[in-house]
């Protein structure tokens, strides 16, 4: 207990408190923090439509990425859970295999694939399918693709583990009582794996909304997500207090998502019992 508590305090609680405290001061004229005045100016500034719209836009992009990751991840997890026992471990292993390569390298690999002079456009032009390169890099499409690609394995793992716990006799009973496969899935399997879906969704959403590398590389810097905004405040504008304010708001948003997921999981367990 004690080492865990120290870990949590030193690496979670103290930094969060620092962010909270920093948010109430001002940037010094040459960067750094002016500790002489306590102010709520940063909070008011964060309410400016400019920054609110960046939050909304990030949530929208993270939301789309989450939805697509679920649409891909659920059938994949379902297929793995239904595969013969001896194949399940190798299949799961393949799902997480990309994590063995560095995130940046995988992202740069997408640039090689998607750029106007890249492999995909090159092949399509060569085959005469298109004459002008498709705009598939340095835009929102590429950013969402990058997020979905990177985070879908989390969805697969989360949903697989809840499918694994699901007693197959429930589905059998439903079929025996005359329900179609579709009805069985919608009315029995899906509700019983809702906690896995929620866990996977929160994973993707939380990781996506704070991401700044993917918008920078695959979005060509043209798309600003909240992570980029915070990065710019700390590094480019050297305005740590305002960066801290935005970080605090982002942390609050993530806590909200995690709490909602915990509540959903709690309710799902309640129904089980």
């Amino acid at each position: 207990m004690a080492p865990g508590l120290i870990w949590l305090t030193a690496l979670m609680i103290v930094p969060c408190l620092l962010i909270f405290v920093l948010a109430f001061y001002e940037r010094g004229i040459y960067g750094g923090v002016d500790w002489s005045i306590l102010t709520s100016e940063n909070i008011r500034r964060a309410a400016d439509w400019l920054y609110v719209s960046v939050f909304i836009d990030s949530a929208r992009i993270a939301g789309i990425a989450t939805l697509i990751a679920l649409l891909i991840g659920y059938p994949a997890a379902f297929a793995i859970a239904r595969a013969p026992e001896r194949l399940q471990t190798p299949l799961l292993f393949m799902a997480i295999l990309p994590f063995w390569t560095n995130y940046l390298i995988r992202t740069y690999a997408w640039i090689v694939l998607l750029n106007p002079a890249g492999l995909i456009n090159g092949a399509l032009i060569h085959l005469g399918i298109i004459s002008e390169p498709l705009p598939i890099l340095y835009n929102e499409f590429a950013v969402i693709l990058g997020l979905v690609y990177n985070y879908t394995p989390f969805v697969v793992l989360a949903i697989y583990s809840s499918l694994q716990r699901l007693d197959p006799s429930y589905a059998e009973a439903s079929r025996d009582l005359g329900a179609s496969a579709f009805t069985t899935f919608v009315r029995i399997i899906l509700p019983l794996t809702a906690s896995g879906v929620a866990a996977g969704a929160v994973f993707v959403f939380v990781l996506s909304i704070g991401n700044f590398v993917t918008p920078d590389l695959l979005g060509g810097g043209k798309l600003q997500m909240i992570g980029n905004l915070i990065y710019d405040q700390f590094l480019t504008a050297r305005d740590w207090p305002f960066g801290a304010t935005l970080s605090g708001l982002l942390i609050a948003l993530m806590m909200l998502a995690l709490t909602a997921q915990a509540l959903a999981a709690g309710r799902a367990r309640g129904e089980h019992a």
Partner: peptide, 10 residues
Amino acid sequence: FSKTVSEIMA
């Protein structure tokens, strides 16, 4: 200046 840059980036 920074706010203007954020406006362009967003």
